[in-house]
């Protein structure tokens, strides 16, 4: 039993995200020279401890949501070659530790940035707009009616199943649910399109050097779309699960 509480992850202002970027602000631990880009000292070539620039900076990418997957993979593989502990088997303990931390941060960063949704969630978490693993599980107002109806059908299906009826009795209900699932999947596609627009808005704001207000608006919009998306996705998943259970 754990007597300690898991502390809710605080916003970025409290968080020391020290495991995520190149270019540490301090001088090279080995030669005292200025740290170079790309996780190695420009002067002596030694591996450096992780900095705090975040996942995008880790890949030397601008903090933009439109990411070319193939380009990201190329960067990931190139960095894997350089940072992996296999390259440091014969190095000193400090360098081996740097390699372990950097390559685990690399894998974490790649996992987070690969998928567009987790990429956007990471961005918002880093800017304190969103808390890790937290989404508002409220029905968006415009969907309230449909969700209410859907939940009723799901209840009906469950009680029909418990009562032992199948086949013809539930087939009409199943058809209705199937239709609803399709409708929600279409909505999901629409939300994904909105998310794409949100990405573009953020990227334009970043490119144009927009002020905090514009960036804040873009992030708030992204957050709202992400919450809605997560809600609809859970809905589709639960309908699918119920239909499979019934099959």
């Amino acid at each position: 039993m754990t007597s300690g509480l898991r502390f809710p992850t605080p916003g970025i202002d409290e968080r020391t995200d020290m495991h995520a970027s190149p270019s540490p602000s301090t001088a090279c631990w080995n030669c005292g020279g200025a740290p170079g880009p790309g996780h190695f000292c420009a002067a002596c070539g030694k591996i450096q401890p992780p900095g705090d620039g975040g996942y995008f900076a880790f890949f030397a990418l601008p903090e933009k949501l439109g990411v070319d997957r193939e380009d990201l993979e190329r960067r990931y593989l190139a960095l894997s070659w350089k940072l992996h502990p296999d390259n440091f088997v014969r190095a000193g303990e400090y360098e081996r530790n740097c390699s372990l931390e950097l390559s685990s941060a690399l894998n974490d960063a790649y996992r987070a940035l690969c998928d567009p949704v987790s990429r956007a969630e990471y961005l918002l978490e880093r800017h304190g707009v969103r808390k890790e693993g937290q989404t508002k599980q409220q029905a968006p107002p415009e969907l309230l009616e449909e969700v209410f109806e859907l939940n009723e059908w799901l209840d009906e299906l469950r009680s029909a199943r418990e009562a032992g009826s199948r086949g013809a009795e539930t087939s009409e209900l199943r058809e209705r649910l199937e239709g609803a699932r399709q409708a929600f999947e279409e909505k999901l596609a629409a939300v994904d399109a909105e998310l794409g627009a949100g990405f573009a808005e953020w990227d334009a704001a970043t490119d144009g050097g927009a002020g905090d207000a514009a960036r804040g608006r873009a992030m708030a919009r992204l957050n709202e779309v992400l919450n809605r998306r997560s809600y609809i996705r859970n809905l589709v998943a639960s309908v699918t699960r119920e239909l499979e259970n019934d099959a």
Binding site: G4, L5, R6, F7, T9, P10, H19, P85, L100, E101, S103, S104, A105, N107, D108
Partner: peptide
């Protein structure tokens, strides 16, 4: 390698 951080209180 992979890693994760958690805050405890």
């Amino acid at each position: 390698p992979a890693s994760a951080e958690e805050l405890f209180t």
